[in-house]
């Protein structure tokens, strides 16, 4: 029955905005997307001014970030009409960069990101099951039937696409926005395991189970399947991290 006000919620209002190391943030965001296969070789990035607007940073920050990517051989800048920054075709998969990225992230942070991501996806799945109409369920099934989970690139794109569909069915603009932000930050890493054919099949089966629970308006089941799905993706990621730390290859 204790009723005094704890400081948490009030202080959070004034918490520092993400501000420090903006060039680094731009670099990490684009590097992850490229080395983890969300951006495809030869794909053109949005223009510098467009990137600046979307990231909410100064033009110079975007230019600095792109310069780092160019030096790393991840993008090239083409001049003239139809020019811009393009994702470089890698001779080999970016294994060394993925190793370095996994090594550079602490286990405790990877686990924590997975908790955050799972919490949002669970909430989306639960609300989607509570709120989906029959036409919504039909559309979700149709979407899932048309989505490619057989190829690595397809599974990476469509895994994120399915989360977004669930968020939309929750009818919450805030959940949609939060999911988009989280996917931008953590999605590519979490989906590292999509190189594994068994992991892809298991993800598709899990998505089908979630869609079934949504149709049945079974919120508890939808939530449970979402929990298990993100846990299994996180386990794959943490295993890869452990392999790297033991001196092996992340995808061995």
């Amino acid at each position: 029955m204790e009723a005094h006000n704890r400081p948490g919620a009030r202080e959070a209002i004034f918490a520092q905005l993400v501000d420090a190391g903006r060039t680094e943030q731009v670099t990490i965001r684009l590097t992850d997307a490229i080395i983890l296969g969300v951006l495809a070789p030869d794909e053109r990035l949005p223009s510098e001014s467009d990137l600046a607007r979307r990231f909410g940073v100064a033009l110079i920050t975007v230019r600095e970030g792109l310069a780092v990517l160019r030096d790393a051989g991840l993008v090239e800048t083409r001049r003239g009409r139809g020019g811009g920054s393009f994702v470089m075709k890698a001779d080999a998969p970016h294994s060394t960069l993925v190793q370095a990225r996994l090594h550079g992230l602490a286990q405790v942070d990877l686990s924590d990101m997975a908790v955050h991501f799972a919490t949002i996806v669970e909430g989306c799945a639960q609300r989607a099951a509570l709120r989906a109409s029959e036409p919504d369920s039909d559309r979700l099934d149709l979407w899932l039937r048309g989505a490619d989970f057989a190829t690595v690139a397809g599974a990476r794109t469509n895994a994120g696409g399915f989360y977004l569909e669930l968020a939309v069915l929750s009818q919450s603009a805030r959940l949609v926005r939060e999911l988009i932000r989280l996917q931008a930050e953590f999605g590519p890493l979490l989906l590292l395991g999509m190189t594994d054919a068994r992991a892809r099949r298991s993800l598709l089966a899990s998505n089908q189970a979630i869609a079934g629970a949504v149709r049945a308006n079974d919120a508890a089941a939808a939530r449970q399947f979402a929990t298990e799905q993100v846990r299994s993706l996180a386990e794959w990621l943490l295993n890869a991290k452990a392999r790297v730390e033991r001196g092996g290859a992340w995808d061995a």
């Binding site: 977004l164 929750s170 949609v176």
Partner: peptide, 12 residues
């Protein structure tokens, strides 16, 4: 609608 526009505005 109403629906959350996930492509453009991210609004209801």
């Amino acid at each position: 609608g109403p629906y959350v526009d996930r492509l453009c505005t991210c609004e209801y």
